[in-house]
């Protein structure tokens, strides 16, 4: 086990209650500054893995260690300082504005003074920068439940960015996004990894584009991590076709020669 690992799973097992299904045992170690794509068919355990990493699900066995700390021993504030999570979708009927939702990203930094004050001391420059980078500045005062799926997704990302954590987890980040915003989103993630050495782990569906953005891939199948490695070698391995039970066409990007997989 490397000392510098940002994210580690030690023989983690999670059993879904009332379902005859379990995830694990999972063991993996990841240094900082990586963009990882978690791929695998529906029900393979991708979301479960992310929720275990976020400390939302507690493993029945084993340990999830993030930034050198067992995530299950941390309180909410310390956990939210380490790991941020962007869910696939989120339903609410309450009309919080975009800005109010994004500001919740700084909740874990509130002191007692902030909690008692009418206005918590929010870093307005940072908030503005985050809104700008996610293209939300014009939507600032819009009610969150009235947004389209893609806009709502960007709000959730903005809140996670405001959390400013070393580890960022995303569940299907580009679902609901149009191609323009999807690419913008992924470039933003790439930039965070390159510039701030953040560790980004995302469950991802699209085999055609995952190789363009992820450094590493984790392949989940029936609750197990069946393969992991750099994106190039994983995508060119025959295990993908086996896991998805389809035949695939292997292409290379005409410019950067990164692998693209498409279904025939």
């Amino acid at each position: 086990m490397r000392e510098s690992a940002m994210v580690q799973l030690h023989d983690v097992i999670y059993r879904w209650p009332e379902a005859n299904a379990a995830v694990g045992p999972l063991s993996v170690s990841l240094p900082a500054g990586q963009l990882v794509g978690v791929i695998g068919p529906n029900g393979a355990g991708k979301s479960t893995l992310l929720k275990l990493l976020a400390g939302f699900l507690r493993p029945h066995q084993g340990q999830v260690v993030v930034g050198g700390k067992d995530i299950s021993t941390l309180n909410g504030q310390s956990r939210a300082r380490l790991v941020a999570f962007v869910p696939q979708t989120l339903e609410t009927t309450f009309d919080l504005t975009v800005e109010e939702v994004v500001q919740l990203g700084s909740l874990h930094r509130y002191t007692w003074r902030d909690r008692l004050a009418v206005r918590p001391a929010v870093d307005q420059d940072r908030l503005a920068a985050v809104l700008e980078s996610t293209g939300l500045t014009p939507l600032r005062q819009r009610p969150f439940p009235k947004l389209s799926g893609g806009e709502a997704k960007r709000v959730l990302l903005a809140a996670a960015l405001l959390q400013d954590t070393p580890v960022l987890l995303l569940d299907e980040p580009t679902a609901h996004l149009d191609p323009g915003h999807a690419v913008g989103f992924l470039h933003l993630l790439q930039e965070l990894v390159a510039r701030e050495e953040k560790t980004v782990i995302m469950a991802y569906h699209d085999l055609a584009s995952v190789g363009l953005f992820a450094h590493r891939l984790w392949v989940m199948h029936r609750g197990r991590l069946v393969a992991q490695g750099d994106a190039q070698s994983i995508l060119s391995s025959p295990i993908i076709a086996d896991v998805y039970q389809v035949s695939l066409v292997y292409l290379a990007h005409p410019q950067n020669h990164k692998p693209l997989l498409i279904f025939p």
Partner: peptide
């Protein structure tokens, strides 16, 4: 925003 999102936000 739901218990899960609240958890993630700390």
């Amino acid at each position: 925003l739901g218990e899960e999102e609240a958890h993630h936000l700390g």
